[in-house]
Simulated scan of single mutants.
Amino acid sequence: MSKPRLNRLFNARSGRAFDVAVDHGAFHEYNFLTGIEDMAKTVATLVDAGPDAVQLTLGQAPLLQAFPGKQKPGLVLRTDIANVYGDPLEMPLHSIHVPDAIEVAVRLDAVAVCVNLLDLPGEPQVREQCIRSILALRTDAEKYGMPLMIEPLVMQTKPGSGGYGVDGDTAKVITLVRQARELGADLIKADPTDDITEYHRVIQAAGDTPLLVRGGGRVDDRTLLERTQAVLEQGARGIVYGRNVIQHHDPAGITAALMAVVHDDASVDDALALIGAPADGDRA
């Protein structure tokens, strides 16, 4: 953590970070847009809720940086576009980075940038594209002092489907996290493992690189908070959650609950008390 920008990402008291990912529109998947149809409203809600950072795309990042004052969440800038989440998939699959992303991130005053490292069964060329992107971004990131967050994602084919889902196999997650570390990540954003008690092995694979745990698909509040507590206890330096916040009936409440667990080591029951009850017709 030698780059000064990271001082604006990690909480000074806890040494941890909570980044809310709202970059889903980049991936050309209609279902990802639920809850973020009005991005200006979404970003305003998150600024009021006060997580440590918000992860946005090139096109949406100015919504966050237009807010005055120095207390707003930091910007984590998504630097690549991929088409690997569709069902059915559209071919050929790709993951392409923005060539001048680091310079754009500097102009936008980002605290870090994020790029995928995808491992898809039967599609090794996509991982090669990701590696080439990481190496290219790494050069400019070092030049400008911009922290590079690598997001290693191990995917598997969904049974009876034409799309991919997350593969939480511990050995596979460890292997890809280790590759992210070898590629020079300043931060790593990784999926939880199917057996969450083994997550300390993923932390070990990251070495001295801070690891933030990805949220993935929607789960109930207690499951989310218990999983968060479990990975933090094993050494994770924070979380990057998206749909579990932005598709929640009370985004501000779930943000407060997660911040309490991440920064104050609150109990799950105490954190749950910070979440408002759903109104009739709200999303669960």
Rank of each mutant, 00 (worst) to 15 (best):
R222C: 01
D280E: 14
A230C: 06
D191P: 04
A205H: 14
G165E: 14
V47R: 02
Q65Y: 00
I81N: 07
K72I: 12
L89P: 10
A112K: 01
P73N: 01
Y241T: 08
V113N: 02
G276E: 15
L224W: 05
D52I: 06
F67V: 10
G25S: 07
N116S: 14
G235L: 05
S95H: 02
L120F: 07
M149K: 00
T157M: 07
Q229K: 12
G216L: 04
G50S: 13
T139G: 00
I96Q: 03
R16Y: 12
A279M: 12
A279C: 09
A266H: 10
R181Q: 13
Y85S: 04
G216V: 04
M146A: 04
P152D: 07
L135Q: 15
Y30M: 07
V262R: 02
A17M: 06
G25R: 12
R132P: 05
Q247W: 08
R127Q: 15
R8M: 04
I134T: 06
K158S: 01
A110N: 02
D87R: 05
P152H: 04
G281Y: 02
L9M: 03
G86H: 12
K70T: 14
T228Y: 00
A190Y: 07
Q55H: 13
C114F: 10
V106W: 05
L77C: 02
P210E: 03
V268G: 03
D23G: 11
R138Y: 01
L89Y: 07
V177R: 01
D109N: 11
A230L: 10
T175R: 15
I254E: 02
T228I: 03
L77Q: 01
V115Q: 03
E233I: 10
K158L: 09
V262H: 00
F10K: 02
H248Q: 08
Q156V: 09
V98S: 13
T45F: 00
V115D: 03
A66T: 15
T223M: 00
A256Y: 08
P159G: 00
R237K: 15
H28M: 12
A61F: 12
V106I: 13
V106F: 03
T223S: 05
L58E: 15
A205F: 14
G216M: 02
Q55E: 15
K3M: 11
D220G: 04
V47S: 03
A257L: 10
G86K: 10
Q60D: 14
L117S: 08
